[in-house]
Nucleic acid binder design. Structure first.
Length: 322
DNA sequence: CACTTGACCTGTCCGC
DNA sequence: TGCGGACAGGTCAAGT
């Protein structure tokens, strides 16, 4: 897919409640979510609001494998550069530098970004675990960007799955990871027809596996895949090739609606320490099936079931989803 | 080729 | 209380 400004989509008027983050779920248990598109988009907006124009004064790798770039290259290509833009593609962040270089940041499952200014945390987002509240750096901190104006960006990642890459503009489109991503869910390229093609191409796989496939649509992870399939009324175990055209259209609409609503409420997986931060992140899991195993489906009262589909924990309503 | 499974990690939770 | 094992999930390599 081409790199385009449409990565930064506009706000919408959707208001259906859906909150993703760490916190107390409907079942009363504390849960942590993984950064999917809405969480990364929320971080992107936060970073864009405070980082543009700042210069990178130093890069410290506390866990070098996360950002495997030689120090000489860092000194040559990163130190001294200015942050011109913050974009998103699927679940990854792109920090555009003024010298034609780009930092590509993939938080994977436990990555988080924390920005501190003058000793005060001004932004924290991504995987909303308590480590984002601990003093920086902490044992989960992998990479530190020292910025101008007394700001510091910390990339924390408890499980070390996340990565940061350095790519120049010319190589961005062919970058190993980015080049394999499918269309953005809110872009014009993601149509019901496109989804139908992908379902047909992987007709033997479960529909959930196809939705999770980043080449189908970029940014959908396990939680939003389950939410989308519930909204569309489709059983996640269905073979992709068995979906009818109306079902495909429903699924297409559901993916967009669920992600849009989640972005609208993305502020909850994101901590703005500047205002009424009281020592804990926000949190409520407002999904229809997410973490609701055994609880009544909000549409039909049937208990939500948890099974394994496509190698992932899968929550669905056996009555609503056929 | 199409699709599934396991590996990568580590904190948390559960049962013994 | 302590300990071992299962579990969580994004992505890719390896396996079927």
């Amino acid at each position: 897919m081409p790199i385009a400004p449409s990565w930064c989509f506009a706000r919408t008027g959707m208001s259906r409640a859906f909150v993703a983050g760490t916190g107390v779920s409907a079942s009363g248990r504390t849960v942590c979510t993984v950064p999917e598109l809405p969480e990364v988009e929320t971080v992107r907006r936060g970073l864009a609001a405070i980082l543009l124009g700042k210069r990178i004064e130093a890069v410290t790798r506390l866990w070098p494998p996360t950002f495997e770039v030689h120090q000489a290259r860092i000194d040559e290509l990163i130190v001294g550069a200015r942050l011109d833009d913050v974009r998103r593609r699927g679940k990854v962040l792109l920090l555009d530098l003024d010298n034609g270089q780009h930092l590509v940041v993939h938080p994977k499952m436990t990555g988080q970004v924390v920005v501190v200014r003058g000793g005060t945390t001004v932004l924290a987002g991504g995987h909303p675990s308590p480590s984002m509240l601990a003093p920086m750096p902490n044992p989960t901190t992998r990479v530190v960007l020292t910025l101008s104006e007394d700001m510091t960006l910390f990339f924390n990642d408890q499980r070390k799955f996340g990565w940061i890459r350095l790519v120049d503009t010319r190589a961005l489109v062919s970058e190993e990871f980015l080049s394999r991503l499918g269309p953005e869910p809110f872009g014009a390229a993601f149509t019901a027809r496109w989804l139908g093609h992908q379902l047909a191409r992987h007709r033997g796989a479960s529909v959930k596996a196809v939705v999770l496939n980043q080449s189908t649509v970029a940014g959908v992870g396990n939680i939003y895949a389950d939410e989308s399939l519930h909204r569309a009324g489709i059983d996640p175990r269905r073979r992709a090739g068995t979906l009818t055209a109306p079902e495909t259209a429903r699924l297409h609409r559901a993916v967009r609606a669920v992600l849009r609503a989640a972005v609208e409420h993305g502020g909850t997986s994101f901590v703005d320490y500047g205002n009424d931060f009281r020592g804990r992140t926000t949190y409520l899991a407002g999904g229809r099936v997410f973490h609701r195993q055994g609880r009544a489906c909000q549409s039909c009262d049937t208990p939500i079931q948890r099974i394994e589909v496509a190698g992932r924990g899968t929550n669905f309503c056996p009555h609503c989803q056929r």
